[in-house]
Amino acid sequence: MRNNIAEMEFLYNKENISAKFSKDKFRQFLQEKVIFPLRGVTKKYYKNDSILTEGEVISHVYVIESGNVAVRKDEEQIISFYSENEIIGVTNLLLGSRSECSFQAISNELVVTKYDKVSIVEKVINTQEGYFYHYVHMQNQFSQMMEKEELLRLPSEQRISLALLILGTNFGEETDDQDLIRFPKSINKGMIAQYTNLNPNTITNVLHKLQNEDSLYPARGGFYIDIFKLQIKLGRAL
């Protein structure tokens, strides 16, 4: 009996659930054809195309295969960014629910697999795995919200530095230097301003300051960030 309890505690503790039911595995779960098989359709969007608008009834679920998406609230505010393996449309499983945000393609090309929401909900609510995948998805959404709240409480320079660190780490391209990351080209200064709720001129001034501190290096069509120096600046060195 004790062994069974210990096994259940290990299997279902928060850390193990997060690892076992991660977003990439959630995607695999949706695409597997053994239980409640789904029929998805590949769809391409291009830069500035709208995938889902704020207030729109969510009738489909979208799994991002490649490309980047900006998640907007009230048009002018960017609350988050999505990339490969992120899933749009499963935050609220109620049929007929409306989207609380809008989702817009910001990369030159965005490839998604589109599913009927009714089929997704059937698969999620009728399987134990589906319950845990949705639980972890909601936990990740909450963590992103708290991370954003923390960011918006910081002074301007720290706020921008942390935004560069978060966005560069999550969406940038690795280089041969483990400390250098190419900042995603699809996220421009205007988007950084909307994400940090700051004036574009403030963004420009802080980027110049970071460049003078050798935390940022201009490059053709974008820039590189030194994540180690940004961590030091923010008191977050690993």
Rank of each mutant, 00 (worst) to 15 (best):
E149G: 04
D179A: 13
P37V: 05
L230P: 08
N68F: 03
N170I: 01
K117R: 13
L210Q: 12
S50I: 14
F26G: 04
L95M: 14
K73C: 04
E173V: 06
L154H: 03
E86P: 00
L38K: 03
F10E: 14
V118Y: 07
A70L: 02
L210H: 12
N201E: 13
K23M: 12
S107G: 01
E32L: 01
I225N: 09
L162N: 11
L38H: 04
E100H: 11
E213L: 14
I88K: 00
K44F: 13
E65A: 10
P155C: 05
D176M: 09
V136F: 12
A19Q: 14
N201V: 12
L11W: 08
V57C: 05
I35C: 01
V61P: 00
M8I: 14
A237C: 10
R220A: 12
T204W: 07
M138V: 10
P37N: 07
G168P: 04
N188E: 08
K25G: 02
I192S: 02
S83Y: 00
L162F: 11
I87E: 01
V206D: 09
S102H: 08
V118F: 05
V118C: 00
S119M: 05
E54G: 07
E56R: 01
R2Q: 10
K148G: 01
M146V: 15
V61T: 03
A6L: 14
P218L: 08
R2V: 10
G89A: 03
L180G: 03
A70P: 02
L180N: 05
D116M: 01
R236I: 10
K233W: 05
V69M: 00
T202W: 01
N170R: 13
S143E: 15
G168S: 08
Y82G: 00
R153Q: 14
Q141S: 15
L165R: 12
M145N: 09
T196F: 02
I166K: 12
V118N: 07
Y135C: 08
D74Y: 08
Q194E: 14
I203E: 01
F183I: 04
K189P: 00
G168R: 04
K33T: 12
F29M: 03
L180R: 09
T175V: 10
L230I: 13
L38Y: 04
Q211A: 09
D24A: 06
Q104V: 15
T53M: 11
I192F: 03
S22R: 07
E9G: 00
A219I: 11
D214L: 11
E213G: 10
N68V: 02
L52W: 11
Y12K: 06
N140T: 15
I125Q: 12
E122M: 06
I192G: 00
S156A: 15
V71P: 02
D49L: 08
I120E: 01
S161F: 06
L93F: 06
N4T: 05
E7G: 01
L95V: 03
N85E: 09
Q231V: 05
D176Y: 10
L164K: 08
D177F: 10
S161Q: 10
N188H: 08
Y62N: 03
I125F: 07
G55T: 03
T113S: 02
L164N: 06
